[in-house]
Amino acid sequence: MPWLALVGIVLFLVGAIWGLGFAPADSKQGNSYRIIFLHVPASFLAMAGYYVMAICGAVGLIWRMKISFMMMKSAAPIGAVLTFISLVTGSIWGKPTWGTWWEWDARITFMLILFFLYLGVWALQTSYQDRDAADKTSAILALVGTVNIPIIYKSVDWWYSLHQPATLKLTGPSSIDASMAYPLIVMIVAFYVLYTWMLLDRTRIEILERERKSRWVQAIFGQ
């Protein structure tokens, strides 16, 4: 799937150059707002990726499909990295904007829990000798954690929080100027494409690793 990577990288470069170089500065925050071009797409994918992981886990548990578990395992590190990017960029933005690196705000705290859920699934995968037990336990953890996603999403509406409410809205007009929204949307699409590419690529590696004793894998590597 090199074309998928190519599309993703081109979109990423277009979005990044457009957003960082050409989009106008914000009237209140100046240039520091530009971190949303990383922060927002990374947060979107961190949450969407969790559903990918949990649904793969559910399919694996119900239909006992091996490939589904392999995809679930591959989604965990990617999601952890995206959540980490979201937390770090948010923190870097928070210092000049809010005046603090970290606040035990609902949105931020539940995002940190999401990070630990990803790490938990990842750790469970590697802590069992038995493949089957590892897959089942980590799928159950992934399923239990799904409740966190709507909580993160609605946290700014349910509680008084420091984090601002959603800017891009599914219903109603977004509260971001079009000149800033377009590069942001390009970046979000770029992150989706790159996520898909990374997930498929990691899953392929995982298949090869788990099936390394099978004849077709050995035929590929000429043994």
């Binding site: 106008p24 500065a25 009237s27 809010w98 005046g99 601002q164 409410p165 509260s175 971001i176 000149s179």
Partner: peptide, 18 residues
């Protein structure tokens, strides 16, 4: 002992806001 600014969800370029 500490004051934090809470940013709103609006993003507008300077010219548009003027």
């Amino acid at each position: 002992t500490r004051v934090l600014a809470k940013h709103d969800e609006n993003y507008t370029p300077a010219e548009v806001s003027e």
